[in-house]
Amino acid sequence: MHYDGLFDIPFTSVSAFVLLMSSVSMVLALAAIQRDNRRGLQIWLFTTAILGMLFLSGQAYEFTEFYHKGLSLNANLFGTTFFVLTGFHGAHVTIGVLILLSLFTMTLQGRITQAQSLNIELAGLYWHFVDIVWIVIFTLIYLIQP
């Protein structure tokens, strides 16, 4: 079922690292606003959104590459499960980026202060959830191959 040499491990490791680091910047955004540091909140929220988009671009590049190498949704069972699994993850990251950009816009309007830090915490919970799913996917799908 597997295509030998399909995965580009160094490339995907970097994008996994990018997503992992976006979790760090997300939690730093929360720490900033809990201390009423609005400037810090803006910077870290924006960083997180950028890292998320970087990850998505990596996924788009990877999907294109795989498709050119002959792996597609309907090629075989591996193609089906791979694209649906990682694709759904990507869709969740996209929603996360939308949430982050919405919150970032709100910070520019000055609508998020220390009293509204709960908004950031909830968005953060979602973002970390998406991240831990990728931790599992990266290990099980990319690194461990039968």
Partner: peptide
Amino acid sequence: LSALKFSLVVLWFMH
């Protein structure tokens, strides 16, 4: 190792 990463994110970042 991935279980370790998972736990770290859940325990610290997700509080």
